[in-house]
């Protein structure tokens, strides 16, 4: 057994212990679990919304849901079961939040981004508009992918997970994850090529 694997086993043991303590009502264990996962969830949510406040809201809501449902979580579903479960809660929240607020958010985001980009003096206005347009179209296109393709793309790009980790979260084989990822990128590329040509 190599050093890295030993370390990972120790982490898993600690995590399982924290889950057990939380299920018995220990609040400190909850705070420790939040510390372990909050940044990972933030990155996932930031990829979705590209907004700090929204990402923080998802982080908070994810852990509130986790707290409510921890009694129903059963251990012994593999070493990464808890991690996969947390990611799934966060991902579903992102989807719900996006559906509820997408129109309002899109308008607001455009405004924020223009302010943000205006401050970067070394970029020409055409480049700014081009990049902004590309970014917004990409975001919309990602939301139009099938649910599984979308999830693989977001977990791969924004959570920077490996294919085997994504396969654990989605409960599919690594091969399927790779196929879904390739299809997602191809589909996005097709949409974006159309956009570039149509300019």
């Amino acid at each position: 057994m190599n050093g890295l694997q030993e370390l990972s086993n120790a982490d898993n043991k600690k995590e399982n212990e924290l889950i057990r303590q939380l299920q018995e009502g220990d609040h400190e264990a909850f705070t420790e679990l939040v510390s372990l996962y909050q940044q990972k969830i933030y990155k996932l949510a930031y990829g979705f919304f590209q907004d700090r406040d929204d990402a923080m809201e998802i982080v908070q809501e994810t852990f509130l849901r986790l707290y409510e449902k921890i009694g129903r979580f059963e251990k012994g579903q593999g070493q990464t079961a808890f991690k996969n479960w947390v990611y799934r809660i966060a991902y579903n929240l992102c989807i719900d939040f996006y559906r509820k607020f997408k129109k309002k958010k899109a308008d607001e985001k455009e405004l924020y981004e223009l302010y943000e980009i205006r401050d970067r003096q070394n970029t020409s206005p055409e480049d700014i508009m081009d990049r902004l347009h590309f970014k917004q179209t990409l975001k919309k296109s990602v939301m139009k992918l099938s649910k599984r393709q979308q999830m693989v793309f977001i977990l791969k790009h924004y959570s920077q997970l490996k294919h085997h980790e994504i396969s654990g979260i989605l409960n599919i084989s690594v091969g399927t994850t790779k196929t879904l990822y390739h299809r997602a990128v191809k589909s996005l590329e097709k949409r974006m090529v159309r956009l570039e040509v149509g300019k």
Partner: peptide, 21 residues
């Protein structure tokens, strides 16, 4: 987008955030 996420993460007090949650 990832770089922007990393930059925004630097300004967050994660320890305080975990305690707040």
């Amino acid at each position: 987008i990832n770089d922007a996420a990393d930059t925004s993460m630097e300004s967050i007090d994660w320890e305080a955030n975990a305690e707040r949650i």
